[in-house]
């Protein structure tokens, strides 16, 4: 992951304004918030957004409905498909089972944060090269898992890649091509691994 850059996603103007890195909810001793909407500071792809939301709002809905970050997809909303995979503090997690308010003070990275400007991340390139997608709806989640898998080192062989990619369902069944894309990145010198580190 490249270092956070303010305004990198270009969404700041739409969703809120850019503010300095904030203290956590605990540090600011805000005590109890909600159930009515409250201001929450979310750091998404290096940009801090002030979002007004109820504590029940999931990270997935906050991204999609409030911040217009629609790369993370809603496939099941119950942790059974992986389409909503994002990184929180560099770890791949499911945004549908994460409360947005619990992400205050943490770094959220979505597929929109993978490319460096116009330059695709090597894993994105490898997905294009290997036709590792069809309808594209699971693809953002697959990518966030695939890049994380490189960081985790779970890319020794195809069996290991397949197992550690099994939390991302692809109904088009592009699975063999997804594995091939990951192998391509692995075998091209671990560029993704370096870039994947924050």
């Amino acid at each position: 992951m490249t270092p956070p850059q303010e305004g990198r996603t270009g969404l700041a103007g739409l969703a809120g304004h850019t503010v300095p890195r904030q203290a956590t909810a605990a540090e600011r001793d805000r005590g109890e918030i909600g159930p009515e909407p409250a201001d929450v500071l979310l750091t998404v792809n290096g940009t801090v957004h002030r979002v007004r939301l109820e504590p029940r709002v999931s990270l997935l809905d906050a991204l999609r409905e409030r911040l217009d970050v629609t790369g993370p997809k809603k496939g099941c909303n119950q942790g059974a498909c992986g389409a909503c995979t994002v990184w929180v503090d560099g770890h791949r997690v499911l945004a549908c089972l994460t409360l947005a308010v619990a992400c205050e003070g943490r770094e959220v990275t979505t597929v929109e944060g993978l490319a460096d400007g116009d330059e695709l991340h090597p894993m994105q390139e490898a997905f294009v090269d290997n036709d590792a997608l069809q309808c594209g709806y699971c693809t953002p989640g697959q990518l966030m898992s695939a890049v994380a898998l490189m960081k985790e080192g779970h890319h020794r062989d195809d069996a290991e890649i397949a197992e550690w990619m099994s939390g991302n369902i692809c109904r088009c069944a592009a699975y063999p091509n997804i594995r091939r894309a990951i192998r391509q990145v692995r075998d091209s010198g671990g560029r993704a691994e370096q870039e994947g580190e924050s």
């Binding site: 956590t24 909810a25 605990a26 005590g31 109890e32 918030i33 909600g34 159930p35 009515e36 109820e54 504590p55 029940r56 409360l99 308010v101 619990a102």
Partner: peptide, 8 residues
């Protein structure tokens, strides 16, 4: 989902 409050 019903609404609820949150604290950390």
């Amino acid at each position: 989902m019903r609404s609820f409050a949150y604290s950390r």
